[in-house]
């Protein structure tokens, strides 16, 4: 894996479930891997004051976000003995039930992969300048804040 090369993280719209299957398939030739760990973020139909979220419209400070994604990757490779790591995050509108974040790490052993995935997810939520407009069924909206 060329881990130094900045990778394109953002995808327009929802992440198709086929991408997860394809990513797994792409790693079957890497026989030093013993464990994959996958996190999938899915849009939840939250209820706020009797209104239901139907989608999130994601925007980002893209140049800074790509830089921060790269820094998180570098930190993860320094901290964990992982073979490879892939991150995909949606931009634009993603409907409830669809996927907006896909983190995929691989390692020789399960604990490292699981810990690395958790590290990626927490770091992404805390540090990457991505903004989410939660759209309700009546077309009003509120701005999502990560907890």
């Amino acid at each position: 894996m060329d881990r130094k090369k900045p990778k394109k993280v953002f995808v327009q719209g929802a992440i198709p479930p086929e991408k997860i299957a394809n990513s797994v398939a792409n790693h079957q030739s890497k026989t030093n891997i013993g464990a994959h760990s996958i996190f999938l973020g899915q849009i939840r139909a939250d209820e706020v004051d009797g209104k239901t979220v139907i989608a999130i419209d994601y925007t980002a400070y893209e140049e800074m976000a790509e830089k921060v994604f790269h820094e998180i990757r570098e930190a993860a490779f320094a901290k964990f003995d992982i073979t490879c790591a892939h991150i995909y995050h949606s931009l634009g509108k993603v409907n409830v039930g669809e996927l907006c974040l896909f983190v995929f790490t691989s390692s020789a052993h399960r604990k490292i992969a699981i810990e690395a995935t958790n590290f990626f997810v927490e770091e992404i939520k805390a540090k990457v300048p991505v903004f989410g407009k939660e759209i309700f069924e009546d077309e009003t909206h509120q701005w999502k804040v990560n907890k």
């Binding site: 400070y61 800074m64 974040l101 992404i124 990457v128 991505v130 903004f131 989410g132 990560n146």
Partner: peptide, 10 residues
């Protein structure tokens, strides 16, 4: 310069 509201990725 960029003015950034709370992050909401993931």
């Amino acid at each position: 310069i960029a003015l950034l509201p709370p992050f909401a990725g993931g």
